[in-house]
């Protein structure tokens, strides 16, 4: 028996009180939780929960390149392996890497490369493994954010962290941080990544339609929202060390 379930999208993406379907305002982010240094065998690792997205990232390197012909004599290479678990989406996802995964791996590598000093490590590779355990819209942005955290945790010299998020247009309104349904049923979707070194845009993809004035507004909104995410990234990296210091101080206080 073949069971056919069609994807059904709601007609309206806003509730009657003006809020979005998940109860957020137009410029409100989904709840974000990050952690670093969670995988023992990786050089650096990080984990993010962004709304319903759950993503792991592990960083290895610099190390030898396999296959060897991919290595470059004058600079290192950055290789990203973005993979989705078979159970991460509604239908079973076929486990082999397809067109979409290869594309996302490429764009993440391209948008992280400007912050690294690859020319200092000729003939070697940095490898980032990204595993999407649960997906609900905006995994490429969440993956970029968590990959830059894992790179920083591995102690690799970086010009800055990278923060990414999606902005877009649903039902004629400009919104920040699209969820899965809004991504599919909305009018426009615009993933954007910002490197904080000189405040440059490192990734800009666009799908849908929007006029130029709207694009300017939505980019400003994106930067405001990205600053909030950047703050969480910085605090996550520092908390790992600050918590150890606090534990020691508490022990001391207990003894006295």
């Amino acid at each position: 028996m073949v069971l056919l379930i069609k994807d059904e999208y709601p007609e309206k993406l806003f509730q009657e009180n003006g809020k979005r379907l998940d109860g957020r305002d137009k410029k409100e982010l989904r709840p974000i939780k990050m952690e670093v240094d969670i995988l023992k065998n990786a050089d650096g690792s990080a984990y993010i929960e962004w709304g319903n997205n759950k993503i792991f990232a592990a960083v290895f390197g610099p190390r030898e390149v396999h296959p060897h012909h991919l290595s470059k004599p004058d600079r290192g290479v950055l290789r990203v392996f973005y993979r989705m678990a078979t159970y991460s989406v509604f239908d079973r996802k076929r486990p082999a890497p397809g067109r979409r995964e290869k594309e996302i791996s490429m764009i993440i590598a391209d948008c992280l490369e400007p912050v690294l000093f690859l020319e200092l490590y000729p003939g070697t590779a940095f490898e980032i493994f990204i595993e999407v355990i649960d997906a609900d819209g905006g995994t490429r942005c969440a993956s970029t954010t968590v990959a830059s955290l894992a790179l920083a945790d591995a102690g690799i010299p970086m010009k800055s962290l990278v923060t990414a998020l999606a902005v877009g247009k649903i039902d004629g309104e400009l919104v920040v941080d699209l969820s899965g349904i809004e991504d599919k049923a909305g009018e426009a979707d615009l993933p954007i990544a910002i490197t904080w070194f000189n405040d440059e845009i490192s990734l800009l993809q666009f799908d849908g339609d929007m006029d130029l004035a709207e694009l300017d507004t939505v980019l400003k909104d994106a930067k405001e929202a990205a600053e909030k995410i950047y703050e969480i990234q910085v605090n996550t990296l520092k908390d790992k060390y600050i918590s150890i210091q606090k534990n020691i101080e508490n022990e001391k206080g207990g003894e006295d």
């Binding site: 010009k159 520092k238 210091q245």
Partner: peptide, 9 residues
């Protein structure tokens, strides 16, 4: 100074 900094700070 035991001030922690992160990349890009």
């Amino acid at each position: 100074s035991r001030e922690l900094v992160v990349p890009g700070e």
